[in-house]
C-alpha cells in the first residue's frame, strides 16, 4: 500500500516539477507548483463533450487507460515497500498493461473519425511498437542482473553486488529517461504545448476529449510517467542504497531533468522520431551486452 501511495505522490509531483524547472530556467516567474492539480480539479468538475461519431469506445477509453495504469502501479515496489501484487513474470503483465492503456487511447482517438486523431494514433502505434522492445530489453537486463523475474525480486537486493554494475545502471537510467520522454510525450519526441495539430502525437490523440474524461487521461499519463521514472530510479538506487526516500528523490529528479531538457532542446522533426526511438533499442541492447559480459566476468583487453 505504501508503494502505491509513493507512486501516486511521485505522479502528482512530477508535472509540477517539470513546469517549475522550465519556468525558472527561462527566467519566468511561472505558475504555482500545484497549478496542474488545480487544472485537473477543474476538469473533473466540467461536463464532458463528445463529437458526432463518438461512441462507447470514446467513453470507455479513458477509464481503461487509467484502470490499466493503476493496475500496473500495483505491481511496482518502491524501495523496501513491496508491491501489492507480485509474482514471477509480473514484468510482462506490467508492459502489457501499459500497452493496454496505449491501445485504449488509440482506439479512443480513432473513434473521433478525424484525420488529426488518426494521425496521432498512427504515430503512437508506431512509436509504441518501437518502445516496447526497448522496455522489455531494460527489464530483461534487470532480470539478468538480479536473477529474478518479478519486480519485488528485481529491486530486492543489491543488483549483482558488483561495482561495475553501477556503470550499467547509469546507462540504464539514461535509457529509461529516454523511454519516459517518448511515453510521456515530451520534447524532443513530442511537445505537449505545441499549437499545431499536425505536429502533435499524444495531444492530438486526446484532442476531442474534455472535462471528466480528459482528467482521467491526464492522471493516467502522470502515473505512467511516474512508473517508468521509478523503474529507472530503483535500478540505479539498488546498486548503492535502495531505500524508498532515495528512490523517490531520484524519480523526482527525472522531473527536473525533463524540465532542463525541455528548456534546452527543441522538438525534433517527426521523421527523426523513429530513429530516436530505435536508438533507445540499440542503447538497451548495448546495456544488456555490458551487463551480460560483466555477469560472465569476461574481461576485455
Amino acid at each position: 500500500m505504501v508503494s502505491l501511495i509513493l507512486i501516486l505522490f511521485v505522479a502528482l509531483m512530477l508535472p509540477g516539477l517539470i513546469a517549475r524547472t522550465r519556468a525558472r530556467l527561462s527566467g519566468r516567474k511561472g505558475v504555482r507548483f500545484y497549478q496542474h492539480l488545480h487544472n485537473v480539479g477543474v476538469l473533473l468538475r466540467k461536463d464532458p463533450i463528445y463529437g458526432a461519431s463518438a461512441g462507447l469506445v470514446t467513453r470507455w477509453a479513458p477509464v481503461v487507460y487509467l484502470g490499466a495504469t493503476l493496475t500496473a502501479a500495483l505491481l511496482l515496489p518502491v524501495g523496501g515497500f513491496g508491491a501489492l501484487l507480485s509474482f514471477d513474470g509480473d514484468l510482462v503483465l506490467f508492459c502489457y498493461l501499459l500497452g493496454l492503456g496505449r491501445l485504449a487511447l488509440m482506439l479512443g482517438a480513432m473513434d473521433a473519425g478525424s484525420s488529426f486523431q488518426g494521425m496521432g494514433a498512427s504515430r503512437e502505434a508506431l512509436y509504441g511498437a518501437f518502445v516496447e522492445p526497448a522496455l522489455f530489453l531494460i527489464l530483461g537486463t534487470l532480470a539478468l542482473v538480479s536473477g529474478q523475474v518479478s519486480f519485488n525480486g528485481l529491486f530486492a537486493e543489491e543488483l549483482g553486488g558488483r561495482p561495475e554494475m553501477g556503470v550499467v545502471m547509469i546507462l540504464m537510467i539514461y535509457a529509461v529517461f529516454k523511454i519516459v520522454l517518448v511515453e510521456a510525450g515530451r520534447i524532443p519526441v513530442d511537445d505537449p504545448r505545441t499549437h499545431l495539430e499536425l505536429t502533435m502525437i499524444h495531444e492530438v490523440m486526446v484532442l476531442d476529449y474534455a472535462g471528466f474524461d480528459m482528467a482521467l487521461i491526464t492522471l493516467g499519463g502522470w502515473i505512467k510517467m511516474a512508473l517508468l521514472a521509478l523503474i529507472g530510479a530503483s535500478a540505479l538506487a539498488t546498486t548503492f542504497w535502495g531505500t524508498a526516500p532515495v528512490i523517490v528523490l531520484l524519480a523526482l529528479l527525472f522531473g527536473i531533468g525533463i524540465g532542463v531538457l525541455e528548456s534546452m532542446m527543441a522538438r525534433s522533426r517527426l521523421s527523426r522520431n523513429t530513429t530516436y526511438i530505435v536508438t533507445i533499442i540499440a542503447l538497451a541492447f548495448v546495456i544488456f551486452t555490458i551487463a551480460f559480459l560483466v555477469m560472465r566476468e569476461v574481461s576485455i583487453g
Partner: peptide, 23 residues
Amino acid sequence: LAFIGGLVVMAFVKLYGVAFQGQ
C-alpha cells in the same frame, strides 16, 4: 516477440479503427 507484439497493436488499431469506428 516484443517487437511483434507492438506491431500487432498497430495492425489491429488500424483494422478496427478504420473499419469500425469513425464515420
